[in-house]
Amino acid sequence: MEFILIDDSVFDLLTEEKLLLKSGLTDTVKSFSSAQEAIKFLKEQTGAMPETVILLDLQMPEINGFEFTRHFAEMSEEMRKRIRIYMISSTVDSMDIEEARDNPYIIELLSKPLEIPVLRSLLGE
């Protein structure tokens, strides 16, 4: 299983990547500091996409996590069914939490900092 990290915080990207690699959940992590870069990467994938988990930050400049899922919705069904999206945020805004809960592409809203035991449980590992 591959992981894609999308977060405008370089610190969070580095921390989450190290946690994921040390956890044994994966040996492949791709990091993007903007949602636009990640969207471009996904659209360029031509072959079968491996099983992938995206950890998506909510609050980012230009394209936030919710806007990313609107772009994701336009991708092929074949790609979407191989990708699971978990939003990760430090938000306490009830509107953000409700929107994440209602979004059909977001499996779960995880709190920052990333807790590997919680993620492992959600992934059934």
Results as ranks from 00 to 15, higher is better:
1 M>V: 06
2 E>T: 01
4 I>D: 02
4 I>R: 05
5 L>E: 11
5 L>P: 08
5 L>A: 06
5 L>C: 10
5 L>V: 03
6 I>Q: 09
6 I>Y: 07
7 D>K: 15
9 S>N: 15
10 V>L: 11
11 F>C: 10
13 L>K: 13
14 L>R: 09
14 L>E: 13
15 T>G: 03
15 T>Y: 02
17 E>Q: 14
21 L>N: 10
21 L>H: 13
22 K>Y: 01
22 K>N: 14
22 K>P: 04
23 S>H: 09
23 S>Q: 00
24 G>Y: 02
27 D>S: 12
28 T>D: 06
28 T>I: 07
28 T>V: 07
29 V>E: 14
29 V>G: 10
30 K>S: 13
31 S>D: 01
32 F>S: 15
33 S>D: 06
34 S>I: 08
35 A>C: 05
37 E>T: 01
38 A>W: 01
39 I>N: 01
39 I>K: 04
40 K>N: 09
42 L>H: 04
42 L>I: 06
43 K>A: 06
43 K>N: 09
44 E>P: 00
46 T>H: 09
47 G>Q: 11
47 G>K: 12
48 A>G: 01
49 M>K: 07
50 P>H: 08
50 P>Y: 03
51 E>G: 01
51 E>R: 08
52 T>N: 06
53 V>R: 05
54 I>P: 00
54 I>M: 11
55 L>G: 06
55 L>D: 07
56 L>A: 12
57 D>S: 11
57 D>P: 00
58 L>S: 02
59 Q>P: 00
59 Q>V: 12
59 Q>F: 04
61 P>F: 10
62 E>D: 07
63 I>W: 01
63 I>G: 13
64 N>E: 02
64 N>R: 01
64 N>G: 03
64 N>W: 02
66 F>E: 08
67 E>W: 01
67 E>M: 05
67 E>N: 09
68 F>M: 13
68 F>Q: 14
69 T>L: 05
69 T>H: 05
69 T>W: 06
69 T>F: 02
71 H>V: 00
72 F>Q: 10
72 F>N: 11
74 E>D: 13
74 E>M: 07
75 M>V: 05
75 M>N: 02
76 S>M: 03
76 S>W: 00
77 E>V: 14
78 E>M: 09
79 M>W: 05
79 M>P: 04
80 R>I: 04
80 R>Y: 03
81 K>I: 08
81 K>C: 08
84 R>L: 09
86 Y>Q: 10
87 M>N: 08
89 S>V: 12
89 S>C: 11
89 S>P: 02
90 S>C: 04
91 T>I: 09
91 T>D: 04
91 T>L: 11
91 T>E: 04
93 D>K: 14
94 S>Q: 15
95 M>R: 15
96 D>H: 14
99 E>D: 13
99 E>W: 10
101 R>A: 11
101 R>M: 06
102 D>K: 15
103 N>W: 06
103 N>K: 13
104 P>T: 12
104 P>S: 14
107 I>E: 14
107 I>W: 03
107 I>N: 12
108 E>P: 05
109 L>R: 15
110 L>W: 03
113 P>I: 01
113 P>R: 06
113 P>D: 07
113 P>M: 08
115 E>P: 08
115 E>V: 12
116 I>S: 15
117 P>V: 04
117 P>G: 12
118 V>T: 12
118 V>S: 02
119 L>F: 04
121 S>P: 00
121 S>Y: 00
122 L>F: 06
122 L>D: 01
123 L>S: 01
124 G>E: 03
124 G>I: 02
125 E>K: 10
125 E>Y: 07
